[in-house]
């Protein structure tokens, strides 16, 4: 029974982080109306960037966010401005194929420079935990969950409260009207992708300090992000949070019940059921 409660708590905490994994993908799908098949690979790229700077600064993974966040923003902005903006309005396929190409490029570049070995962002917090009654709460899971939820709330405030946020929402509602009101669409899309990559970068650094990662880990997290988008409903920021928690719980509790080897398969099964029962998402309007 204690094991079960432990699994539920871990699943809840992991869920907050999963929400952050899917947040950027949901946002881009809602605003720019393209699917970023490289979302998971960008996340893994952030892990490796963090690893690199940990070596340079001799610092903890969370400190490297100071450099990872701006780098990820400019990567996102650059990819959107130089490539994806060029194929907008040409239908679904070209952006899908371009991001698929980027996914392959990132994955194999990482494989070339860092080999296929498992890596981990060594954090002094990894093994620390505190006990609440009979269960122990791992500190790093808690921190990840808090940061994950904080990004979601921050993004919500940003979208509601700032000019840029309003411009992004206006563009997503009616591109033509937004243009007439003086919004620069191309750069708005660039900023949106930059923000999306920042969320992926933060999520990536947290994932990298909790779990082993490989150059090929991108597809695993793409599927997590996809699950969050599908369960949460497209473009719904707070739906993303609930979706992350549902998916995280399903994976960890499923892994506890059926054995760790089935953790991923249980996640896929939940996603599958969602796709059959309610493909438009639980929280879409």
């Amino acid at each position: 029974m204690d094991g079960m409660i432990q699994a539920i708590i871990q699943g809840l905490l992991l869920g907050g982080l999963y929400a952050a994994v899917g947040l950027g993908m949901s946002m881009i799908f809602g605003i720019v109306k393209i699917t970023n098949l490289a979302h998971g690979d960008f996340l893994v790229l952030a892990c490796y960037i963090s690893l690199l700077f940990m070596g340079v600064f001799h610092s903890s993974p969370l400190t490297t966010l100071i450099v990872v966040v701006p780098i990820m923003f400019f990567i996102g902005f650059g990819v959107q401005r130089t490539m994806l903006n060029k194929v907008i309005g040409r239908g679904d396929e070209p952006p899908l194929l371009i991001t698929f190409g980027i996914s392959i490029i990132i994955q194999n570049l990482l494989l070339y420079f860092f080999t296929a070995n498992a890596q981990k962002l060594a954090s002094p917090l990894l093994l620390k935990s505190f006990s609440a009654g009979t269960v122990s709460i791992p500190v790093l899971y808690l921190i990840s969950c808090i940061i994950g939820v904080a990004i979601i709330l921050a993004l919500g405030v940003f979208m509601k409260g700032t000019y840029l946020g309003k411009a992004i929402r206006a563009t997503s509602d009616d591109t033509e009207a937004a243009t007439l009101m003086g919004v620069n669409i191309k750069s708005t899309f660039g900023v949106a992708m930059g923000i999306s990559m920042v969320t992926a970068g933060v999520a990536g650094v947290l994932i990298g300090s909790l779990f082993n990662f490989y150059p090929s880990s991108g597809s695993t997290y793409l599927i997590v992000a996809f699950a969050v988008v599908v369960i949460g409903g497209i473009g719904s920021i707070y739906g993303t949070l609930w979706a992350g928690i549902i998916f995280g719980l399903a994976q960890v509790v499923g892994g506890f019940v059926f054995g760790a080897a089935f953790q991923q398969l249980v996640g896929y099964a939940v996603l599958l059921i969602m796709l059959i029962v309610r493909p438009q998402g639980l929280f879409s309007k």
Binding site: M83, V87, L97, G101, N108, L111, Y112
Partner: peptide, 21 residues
Amino acid sequence: IGSLSQVILGVIAVAVILLAP
């Protein structure tokens, strides 16, 4: 060259989609 061959294939494919769809 190792995995760079896949990188080259990816770059060519992306360039073709952008320049000669």
